[in-house]
């Protein structure tokens, strides 16, 4: 029964995620996408008469159920079939992170960086608040995230999605290698 606590390799997880595209299309004509849920939350809670949020969000309730399911999936998986042992990471990355004082690799989210105490430090503010803001602002400005553009968009051969996906990767690669080290060493 140990296999159940083993992490899944990419060739199991990737195809399963790919199958979500036809499942959503066939059970209700829905296009796979997650970041739009953030927009529906804005439209439902704080529309503030902004045209971008003046639409009938109730037509998109499915999307909120979808992300609710993701959250619940996170709860149940962690409670009953978590991955045993720490995340195995590349030795170079481990050495680099050690040099910033990040030594706890036991969780999926590094406890040294993302915790309630660090939220009130400059580093924590940049990582948690500024980072989150960029995710929300950037995905909406780009018109989608990894699911909507990289997976759904590329699966349907839409070239704007290819442009967006390349920009996600370019932004991430440049920032992770050249800027993030300064933030992490704060």
């Amino acid at each position: 029964m140990n296999w159940i606590f083993e992490p899944w390799p990419w060739y199991v997880a990737g195809p399963l995620i790919g199958l979500i595209v036809p499942i959503l299309l066939l059970i209700g004509n829905k296009s796979f996408g997650i970041s739009s849920s953030l927009r529906h939350i804005c439209a439902a809670c704080i529309p503030a008469n902004i045209p971008f949020f003046k639409y009938d969000w109730k037509k998109e309730t499915w999307n909120l159920f979808f992300v609710g399911g993701i959250l619940l999936g996170g709860v149940l998986t962690s409670a009953f079939i978590p991955n045993a042992g720490p995340v195995e990471i590349h030795p170079e990355l481990a050495a680099e992170l050690n040099s910033y004082g990040i030594a706890d690799f036991s969780g999926l989210v590094p406890a040294d960086l993302f915790n309630w105490t660090s939220l009130f430090t400059l580093k924590g503010f940049l990582m948690i608040v500024a980072g989150g803001f960029l995710v929300g602002f950037g995905t909406r400005y780009a018109g989608g995230c990894t699911s909507g553009h990289a997976i759904m968009g590329l699966s349907t051969l839409q070239w704007p999605s290819l442009v967006a996906t390349c920009c996600f990767m370019a932004g991430g690669i440049l920032f992770a290698n050249y800027v993030l080290p300064f933030i992490l060493s704060l």
Binding site: I34, S35, S37, L38, V67, G68, I70, L71, G74, V109, L126, M127, I128, A130, G131, G132, F133, L134, V135, G136, F137, G138, T139, R140, Y141, A142, G143, C145, T146, S147, H149, P160, S161, V163, A164, T165, C166, C167, F168, M169, A170, G171, G172, I173, L174, F175, A176, V179, L180, I183
Partner: peptide, 23 residues
């Protein structure tokens, strides 16, 4: 697609999460 894409890429590198993984 370009400007927003670059911004999201940076946010992804910082938080280690796209919108789905946040949940």
């Amino acid at each position: 697609n370009v400007y927003g894409g670059l911004m999201f890429g940076i946010g992804w590198a910082i938080t280690g999460a796209c919108p789905g993984p946040l949940f």
